[in-house]
Amino acid sequence: MTGLRLAAVLLAVFAASFALAQGDPRRSGYREMGPALQKMQDDDAANPAMLFVQAGAAAWAEKAAAGKSCADCHGDATASMKGVAARYPAFSAEAGKPIDLEGRINLCRTTHQQAEALAPESDGLLALSAYVALQSRGQPIAPPDDARLSNLRAEGAELYKRRQGQLNLSCANCHDDHAGRKLAGATIPQGHPTGYPIYRLEWQALGSLKRRLRNCVIGMRAEPWSYDAADYLALESFLMQRAKGMAMDAPGVRP
């Protein structure tokens, strides 16, 4: 790297961190972790989620019974899937409704591969979504500017503010009003979905944003919704909108 280019890069990095410090008060959950866990996430040779990414890369190239692999249609994922995870949930013309990334992968399986949909939180689905999400690392979250998503986002926003469960708490009570404070030793993050799917140390496994939300709902002493409930999609859409412009850091590590 020439001196000039290095200077330019340093300037850009400096400008970015300056902008961060100045304007945007939003923080990824990554920033609430101690240095040891940040290092675990940053090192691809140490981040346990990369085991799933590797399995996802293999699944990407694997032919379904009907003959086609993901790669046969989408080619090299590092090019074709760049930025894709950063803009889901999105409206699918094929499905005639909004779907999230897992829904999109399963749609391809059922319609384009004549294969069965992968179960929520199955290793197969997590591996493929981790592999696809990795291709958006560093990309800004970019929810589609699509009026067909407005209702869903509004529903999500309402859910986020609604008090529920035996504790009569809302998501906002923790993630807006008390973010940065401690809860049972854990720092309450702002709740941005930048790193999904995540390897959560508590699970000792990879899990989706739905599973993470489910844990919060259980924490609120509310009855958790089933994995196919529309509430998750609404919250996911709202959270992605709320995190618009933040950099993706999937697959993340979280405590």
């Binding site: 090192d43 040779a45 140490a46 346990p48 990369m50 085991l51 399995a55 000792q204």
Partner: peptide
């Protein structure tokens, strides 16, 4: 050298 393996332990 770094080695990771998937296992429930």
């Amino acid at each position: 050298i770094k080695a990771l393996i998937m296992h429930v332990m």
